[in-house]
Design a protein around this nucleic acid. Structure first.
Length: 550
RNA sequence: UUUCCUAUGGUGCAAGGGUAACACGUCAGAUUCUGGCUCUGAAGAUCGUGGUUCGAAUCCAUGUAGGAAAACCA
């Protein structure tokens, strides 16, 4: 008997519906508009919709909500499919709202014939005026009382292309005094001579979201149509169309979308960053897109885990980035092989190590793995690169690393003692000179010496060179959306630091794009998609937790 | 000024009239050939006010705060 896990409110609804026999099979859908790349907020919706049918049986459709040809592109369709698959989900049917354009047109005629829709020739300004405001009721359009026959004729001619773009709309005839402004005779069709990425030039009229989404759900027998909170006011209209059209009663349920600290989530803003070249495309590792996280080195498992941990509820939320970072560290800690890389090098010379001698050390690849992940060979010599920050001329209190007279363990190798150091004319440390304890070799240390600190290193003569891109949060404030002014003013100027020449151990030569490693003591890194054996490029996925603060 | 949604530690999310749980984060300690991981411990919450009740985060009333709703976008 496993521990009872509490249900979120949607699971409760579903369990009740299943128990009461309202539905035998659960059908959900994920309905992206193909006008951008999917982001981590979409991942939340994907996990919800696909996760529900995985848990309760049934299936999930992928439906592209492509009713606005102006912004939609096949490139986006492809990237969205790739991202869903990468997350590990399989859709039952691949569908498009545009598959239903004929049927939707028929629905519109049905509404017209029932006297529930009319062709309106008001301009958009007039229309806005008729709408009223949240606190004042609207007014009826002068075209509201046309006969069904006249409306049908006009609407058919709209479709036939007799009228100019924007000159007419089809409106649902509901109630201009409704307290819900969505219900004040919403536009359901508009004339738009625009090439559609799938239907080409077949149509010059396109249905609006409200007249396409719910009906598409209904056509597909979607039982639970799950969307985000901004559609709450649309639910009344969603139900109205289904009722008047007398079609399958899909039900809409709304949950709170994901917000993450130090980033933005709106497709509009992300598109802006791409278009203005503030990032390197939709899959820039700083972007909160699924493809960005992929390139950054995140695993699908870590994103699924994150989505599971954040939960589903109806209150606005702002999730701390640290939770996502926890999820990827947790996953990579188990799976990523450890290697040594020096990002900000200074020379370490061992003055009592035999001139010209080389040794091969053995390092375990992953202390967290059951078999330790196997081992690799690491060449060692008397001339090494170490991290600049691992030496302090005047050590802080509780400093465990190198300082004049101090001893540290070189990971997988010997204990060394700092004998001296060299500064250049500017006062910068250029070299640390040490002696080593020959009997302190890793694996058979008989020195009896205990040191507190261990540092990583790379043998200078054997080092490979790589470019390392150190990514940090995209914005410097937790909630760029909440700040005054342009969100772009809050971009973090240090979100990317490129290390042109990092020294890495030779085992890393030829690492394949997409592979992930832990650079010991530095963080997790993934090989960039543009990396080649000749020019290795690593992206920092996330740093290690660092409890050292001075 | 209208309608709708929401309100629990710093952040999320549970508890569905009966001990406010869990996770991330924070702090302290242990361990450590990664100042990682692991382990131990600590601090920290029911929006306010009335009511119902033996008993309220939970039910009722009222107030307050936040969000949403105006597009020929989705």
């Amino acid at each position: 008997m496993s521990e009872e896990k509490s249900l979120n409110f949607i699971e409760e609804i579903i369990e009740n519906d299943l128990k009461s026999g309202k539905y035998q099979t659960l059908v959900t859908r994920f309905p992206p508009e193909p006008n951008g790349y999917l982001h981590i907020g979409h991942a939340k919706a994907i996990c919800l919709n696909f996760g529900l049918t995985k848990k309760y049986g049934g299936y999930t459709n992928l439906r592209f909500d492509d009713t606005n040809p102006v912004t939609e592109k096949t490139e986006y369709v492809n990237s969205q499919q790739e991202d869903i698959k990468w997350l590990g989900f399989e859709w039952k049917n691949e569908l498009h709202a545009s598959d239903y354009f004929d049927e939707l047109y028929g629905f519109a005629l049905r509404l017209i014939d029932k006297g529930l829709a009319y062709v309106d020739e008001s301009t958009s300004e007039e229309l806005a005026k008729q709408k009223g405001t949240p606190t004042t009721v609207g007014t009826n359009s002068p075209f509201r009382d046309r006969s069904p026959g006249e409306n049908r004729d006009l609407f058919e001619r709209m479709r036939a292309g007799e009228f100019a773009d924007g000159s007419m709309t089809l409106r649902a005839k509901i109630d201009m005094a409704s307290p819900n402004m969505i219900m004040r005779d919403p536009i359901i069709y508009r004339i738009k001579r625009e090439h559609h990425h799938r239907t080409g030039d077949k149509w010059c009229i396109y249905p609006m979201y409200d007249f396409a989404h719910g009906q598409s759900d209904s056509i597909e027998n979607i039982t639970h149509s799950i969307c985000t909170l901004e559609y709450v006011p649309h639910r009344e209209l969603y139900d109205w169309f289904i009722e008047k059209l007398e079609i399958f009663p899909s039900k809409q349920y709304e949950f709170a979308r994901l917000n993450l600290t130090y980033t933005v989530m709106s497709k509009r803003k992300l598109l802006q960053l791409v278009n203005e070249n503030l990032v390197d495309g939709w899959d820039d590792p700083r972007m909160p897109t699924i493809s960005g996280f992929r390139r950054r080195g995140y695993t699908p498992e870590s994103i699924l885990e994150f989505c599971d941990r954040i939960g589903i509820a109806k209150r606005e939320n702002l999730i701390e980035l640290s939770l996502l970072e926890f999820c990827i560290r947790e996953d990579l800690n188990k799976s990523a092989n450890r290697v040594m890389a020096v990002l900000d090098p200074i020379k370490l010379t061992i003055n009592n190590y035999p001139e010209g001698q080389t040794e091969v050390m053995t390092g375990e690849n992953n202390p967290e793995a059951e078999d330790k992940g196997g081992t690799r060979e690491i060449p060692f010599s008397g001339s090494l690169w170490i991290e600049r920050e691992d030496f302090m001329e005047e050590p802080a209190k509780k400093w465990f690393r190198l300082a004049p007279g101090a001893m540290v363990r070189l990971k997988h190798a010997y204990i060394v003692k700092c004998e001296d150091f060299v500064k250049d004319a500017n006062g910068h440390i250029t070299e640390v000179i040490c002696s080593y304890l020959p009997e302190s070799k890793s694996g058979n240390d008989t020195s009896g010496v205990n040191v507190k600190g261990t540092i990583h290193w790379v043998s200078a003569a054997h080092a490979q060179i790589a470019e390392v891109r150190l990514y940090d949060r995209l914005f410097s404030v937790p909630s760029p959306d909440a700040e005054e002014g342009d969100f772009k003013d809050y971009l973090n100027p240090a979100s990317l630091e490129v290390v042109e020449t990092a020294y890495i151990e030779p085992a890393l030569a030829g690492a394949a794009p997409g592979s992930r490693f832990q650079f010991i003591r530095k963080g997790y890194f993934a090989v960039d998609k543009n990396s080649t054996p000749e020019k290795l490029i690593f992206n920092r996925t996330v740093t290690l937790k660092d409890s050292w603060k001075k």
